[in-house]
Computed example of a mutant assay.
Amino acid sequence: MTTDTTPAPADDNPALLVAAAVDRCLELASTWMAWDGRPITTDGANLWTPSKAVRRIQDHLVDHLAEVEALLAGAAPQPDLWHGRTVTLEADWARLTETDLAEARSRWTRLAQAYVNRYATVPDAWDVPRDPNWTLRAIAEHVAGVTWYAEQVGDLRFGDSARIR
């Protein structure tokens, strides 16, 4: 499993960073069934649950893939209107089951593969300036930071979910 999220060399598909980030998210998520139901607080204000992290990872992957597709089509990307991490939805309190994890694994790996495949079709476009938007390479490097959401919940193998970080 690759978890290195440093920028890819100029000749490597930058979306491989997204695939590596998804691998890391799945590694952590595989421990989240041990969550004890108590919220995890980070940065003094952000409240996290495994289901909230799953939602945010999916939102991030979808948002930026839609952005890439819009930019490649010459269209303006739609602004995201998610509330993001500032809200905790009722559904975020649900426990994460084996089936939920399997669903996330299917979604995230398919989305990561969509990034890799899409970027592979347009290598000459990776570094084209797209002001005021980022380059495709910069978008992939940003999306690879999706691991931040998973790290907010962390590794729960040892039942240590009620902690403040």
Rank of each mutant, 00 (worst) to 15 (best):
M1N: 10
M1K: 12
T3Y: 11
D4A: 11
D4W: 04
T5E: 11
T6M: 02
T6D: 06
P7G: 04
A8M: 07
P9H: 00
P9C: 00
P9I: 00
A10G: 03
D11L: 01
D11S: 09
N13C: 00
N13T: 03
A15L: 01
L16N: 12
L16W: 09
L17I: 04
V18N: 03
A19Y: 01
A19T: 09
V22C: 02
R24K: 13
C25G: 06
L28K: 06
S30N: 09
W32A: 05
A34F: 07
W35F: 01
W35H: 12
D36N: 11
R38C: 10
R38K: 12
P39H: 04
P39V: 02
I40H: 14
I40N: 14
I40R: 15
L47T: 15
W48R: 08
P50M: 04
A53I: 02
V54D: 08
R55Y: 00
R55D: 03
R55M: 01
R56W: 05
R56L: 13
I57R: 00
I57D: 02
I57Q: 03
D59E: 07
D59V: 04
H60Y: 03
L61A: 09
V62K: 10
H64V: 06
A66F: 06
E67C: 11
V68N: 04
E69S: 11
E69K: 14
E69W: 08
A70E: 11
L71K: 11
L72Y: 08
L72D: 12
A76V: 15
Q78M: 10
P79G: 11
H83W: 02
V87S: 09
V87K: 13
D92V: 06
W93N: 15
W93A: 15
R95G: 15
R95F: 10
L96H: 04
T97F: 03
E98T: 14
E98M: 12
T99L: 13
T99R: 14
L101S: 01
A102C: 08
A102G: 09
E103M: 10
R105T: 12
R105P: 01
R107H: 09
W108N: 06
L111C: 10
Q113I: 05
A114N: 09
Y115N: 10
R118L: 12
Y119K: 03
T121L: 08
P123Y: 02
P123L: 04
D124I: 01
D124P: 02
A125D: 12
D127Y: 00
D127K: 02
D127I: 01
P129W: 05
P129S: 05
R130L: 05
D131F: 10
D131R: 12
P132R: 13
N133R: 13
N133H: 14
N133F: 13
W134D: 08
T135A: 01
L136D: 09
A138M: 05
E141I: 07
H142C: 07
H142K: 12
V146S: 02
T147L: 06
Y149M: 03
A150I: 00
Q152F: 03
V153I: 05
V153C: 02
L156V: 09
R157P: 01
G159T: 10
S161V: 03
R165I: 09
R165D: 14
